[in-house]
Amino acid sequence: MSASQSASRGSRPLSPHLQIYKPIPTMVMSIVHRITGVALYGGTLLFGWWLIAAASGPEYYAVVNGILGSWFGLLVMFGFTWALIHHMLGGLRHLAWDLGHLFDKHVATRMAWATLILSVTLTVAIWVIGAMVL
């Protein structure tokens, strides 16, 4: 590295890390949107496993249903439901942005909070209705 490259490199500002920024709702929802997207891969594999078990016969279905019907399995499926709904609502929020709407700072912040609150509310409602039906 030449002296001029070293000098120019030292005078440039460094890119700040996440620890520098104060977490704001839109930033946190962006991170959570990415995390739920990754979680959907695992949940989709579990859902596929359950469907394959259902098609394989009653013995194998009973095994898989026993695992997914355990308290841990239900907790995972509850999380999958929340991730699915939260990711969908985040996608709708991004669609509105892609169409050029809801860019005002206070509106974007309210939409971030609404995404979180609505995803939790809808998840609980789906599970309560599902429990009442069964």
Score class of each variant (00 low, 15 high):
Tyr60Asn: 05
Ala53His: 05
Ala96Leu: 05
Thr26Pro: 14
Phe78Ala: 10
His94Ile: 07
Phe103Val: 13
Thr121Glu: 09
Ser56Asp: 03
His94Gly: 04
Leu51Val: 02
Val32His: 14
Phe47Ile: 00
Leu95Gln: 12
Val64Met: 12
Lys22Phe: 14
Gly91Ile: 07
Trp97Lys: 00
Leu122Asn: 04
Leu122Gly: 01
His86Trp: 01
Phe103Lys: 15
Ile52Asp: 02
Leu134Asn: 00
Ala114Phe: 09
Ile24Ser: 08
Ile20Gly: 05
Ile24Asp: 11
Val32Tyr: 13
Ser8Lys: 04
Ile24Met: 13
Ser30Arg: 01
Leu102Ile: 06
Gly48Asn: 07
Val38Ile: 13
Val63Arg: 04
Leu40Ser: 05
Ile31Pro: 03
Ala7Trp: 12
Val28Gly: 09
Ile35Lys: 00
Leu99Asn: 08
Pro13Arg: 12
Val133Ala: 00
Gln19Ala: 15
Leu102Cys: 05
Val76Ile: 05
Asp98His: 11
Thr81Asn: 07
Asp98Gln: 10
Ile24Arg: 08
Met27Cys: 02
Gln19His: 15
Trp113Asp: 12
Ala112Asp: 08
Met111Ala: 07
Ile129Arg: 15
Leu116Thr: 12
Phe47Val: 01
Gly57Asp: 06
Val38Asn: 07
Ser4Met: 13
Ala3Cys: 00
Trp127Val: 02
Val32Phe: 13
Lys105Leu: 05
Gln5Tyr: 14
Val107Asn: 09
Val38Met: 09
Val28Gln: 10
His101Gly: 11
Gln5Met: 12
Gly48Glu: 01
Gly66Lys: 03
Gly69Cys: 07
Gln19Pro: 11
Val32Arg: 11
His101Val: 11
Ser11Leu: 14
Ile117His: 01
Ala62His: 04
Arg9Thr: 15
Gly69Trp: 04
Val120Met: 06
Val76Glu: 04
Leu84Ile: 08
Met132Lys: 15
Asn65Pro: 00
Ser8Phe: 01
Gly57Asn: 06
Gly48Tyr: 06
Ser11Val: 11
Val128Gly: 06
Ser119Val: 02
Trp113Pro: 07
Trp50Val: 06
Ser15Gln: 07
Phe80Val: 08
Thr121Val: 12
His86Pro: 00
Arg9Ala: 15
Leu116Cys: 11
Trp49Gln: 04
Ile85His: 11
Pro58Asp: 13
Phe78Arg: 01
Met27Pro: 01
Arg110Phe: 01
Ala112Phe: 04
Ile129Ser: 15
Trp50Tyr: 10
Leu116Lys: 06
Ala53Met: 04
Ala55Met: 03
Leu75Phe: 05
Val32Leu: 15
Thr26Val: 14
Thr36Gly: 04
Leu116Asn: 11
Phe72Gln: 13
Ser11Gln: 11
Trp50Pro: 01
Val124Gly: 12
Leu89Thr: 02
Ser30Gly: 13
Lys22Cys: 14
Pro16His: 14
Gly48His: 09
Leu14Trp: 07
Gly73Asn: 07
Tyr41Arg: 03
Asp104Arg: 09
